[in-house]
Design a protein around this nucleic acid. Structure first.
Lengths: 341, 341
DNA sequence: CTGAAAGCGCTTACAG
DNA sequence: CTGAAAGCGCTTACAG
């Protein structure tokens, strides 16, 4: 129990001033003479005083913590390094401010909504990061109703009072498709992410648009839940057809890696028989065989930007949206010229 | 700001009793007549009263939150689904108790130690989960000095006042080696994890022991930091030797998957030319090619057990150690009979 | 069984 | 610029 034994009262007594004045001095507020301020700070330092977060929380009605609630299927969560990187990025901005991150991992949407309510009813957090945006996302009106500041990771498809950090996935998908077309591919399929998630459906429509712009007929798309298992299933379906695609654009890397496995299992050579591309450039991509051609994104940059924006919002009541640079295609060995176009 | 508008004082006024009595009733403490209790609870319910965590925190000196600080390299963190699963397991026991999880991801050990100090000096958490145990782990004496309750994930190699949740990795490694030997392998190598981490060095000595028990000469071991990149490097070194091993036992799955990639890249067939095994049975293992033979562990069980034990400890001041069942070998296609033993 | 009061450790008007 | 006091919303001895 080495928790703050020394309180503001001790400092006040030692300095011969009131607790109020000490508080003012410590919080750098005007109305304290320079010499008093210096003396008070000195005494606080000497006494080893550190503020009681609990007392400050009670009187200021703030919790000095930010929240993140993740409602992904554990399987999808585990195979995708987005959140670890994102969180590491967030922490770089929270830690210096003495703010903590409260994390919830919940199994379903009902629990998720309940969790947000509990978070504000308990006054656990001063703001939250909203990730994995969905169509007509019910969390946005909920948070608005709860009066909880938030920043959304991605641009919502509905009216939103919250600033957003977004990155356009379109250029990365378009670049991927153009690259495949330039290699000679004409039958290109897409293993899409969850259509309920904005980034899932946006990557998909980017794919459709890119094909059209290349003058190709619409390609096959298979919807998944972004999981490795679903990616493998989709790849199997696509590749065991009569006239299989010569290239598959996967909406994320874990599914693409599963696709690589399926191709090998079916005795297909990558990229000779089928080219495979991913999205995100997770660490695995460099070490599978052939190494995965994919689009690089930077989750920790999202984390940093989101953290800064949320702080901004809480401090000033408003904060500008942030557009992160679009991901670029990283060319490796998993895509190449089709042997039988 | 829909935070508790109604306070205990409102309930007391409405019930015509003192705040103290309300508090006693709400906390189910003796010394309140049955009828008073019922009436008070009813009124609280009707008024929509919910306790103020901040006020309770200040007066009880508890934070109603548990902490987890992770000091892994972001790369290793991202490719390993241990923490997502572990955290999901932890949450299943914290959430029903109204406890929150405070998560810190820190870049190095210095920051890590500072983070623990800040956590208790701020009174952020009532206890912590200590993961990735190291040799002579400095966090154990630190937490002891700070008086912070903790549970360790794994059995420390030093005196520890904290209960531990552990699982013996030895049977899994031994089973793996015996299996490989039964297939006819004689030159078996190990790509070990970080020697600084207990589970890294324990898996390694289990490997050494297993070889010895099989009557085989000591095998090659290469130490890594558990990262995918290091796993790939190690595999490359092992497989490009004059007399390469016919089987490689990797200390975790991400490295094994990288090893699979390296083997393919070198033109080696798996398992004909080289057998590969992993550890943990992450989701990817089923979907790479060939599917990975590995040892199944259950991080979410760790999470549940750790959560329960930490609650126990905080409530009773003491809690028994928990031994989780050892992981079993899961046989898939990545290990087989060596073509040239 | 119940009430009145002090206390947790800060912040914040309000006077002067 | 400074002090004295009230308040944040609970819990907890202490009396009765």
């Amino acid at each position: 129990m080495s928790e703050n034994k020394v309180t503001i009262a001790d400092v006040a007594r030692e300095a011969g001033v009131s607790k109020g004045l000490v508080s003012f001095a410590l919080n750098d507020r005007p109305g304290v003479s320079a010499e008093s301020r210096v003396r008070i700070l000195e005494i606080a330092e000497r006494l080893g005083w550190t503020p009681s977060l609990r007392a400050r929380s009670l009187s200021t009605r703030r919790s000095f913590a930010l929240g993140l609630v993740i409602a992904r299927d554990p399987e999808v969560l585990g195979s995708d390094p987005f959140f670890p990187s994102f969180i590491a990025g967030v922490e770089t901005v929270l830690a210096p401010q003495g703010l903590a991150l409260v994390l919830s991992v919940v199994p379903d949407e009902t629990t998720e909504m309940r969790t947000y309510r509990a978070l504000v009813s308990d006054g656990r957090v001063d703001g939250v990061f909203l990730s994995d945006l969905r169509h007509n996302d019910p969390r946005i009106p909920l948070l608005q109703e709860l009066g909880l500041p938030a920043v959304t990771l991605g641009r919502p498809d509905t009216e939103s009072p919250f600033p957003c950090i977004s990155v356009d996935d379109t250029p990365g998908v378009a670049e991927t498709v153009r690259y495949l077309v330039s290699l000679g591919h004409r039958r290109i399929a897409h293993v899409a992410g969850s259509p309920a998630l904005l980034h899932g459906s946006r990557r998909r429509s980017a794919f459709d648009t890119a094909l059209r712009e290349a003058g190709l007929p619409a390609g096959q798309s298979i919807e998944t839940d972004f999981s490795v298992a679903a990616g493998a299933d989709a790849a199997r379906r696509l590749l065991t057809q009569d006239s299989p695609p010569t290239a598959i654009v996967f909406a994320n890397d874990p599914m693409a890696i599963a696709g690589l496995g399926v191709a090998h299992e079916l005795g297909l050579r990558v990229p000779d028989d089928v080219s495979i591309t991913g999205f995100d450039d997770i660490d695995f991509t460099r070490y599978v065989y052939p190494a995965l051609t994919t689009v690089r994104t930077a989750p920790s940059d999202w984390g940093r930007a989101a953290g800064r924006t949320l702080l901004d919002l809480m401090e000033h009541g408003t904060a500008p949206d942030v557009d992160l640079p679009a991901g670029r295609l990283v060319i490796r060995g998993s895509a190449g010229t089709p042997v039988r176009p």
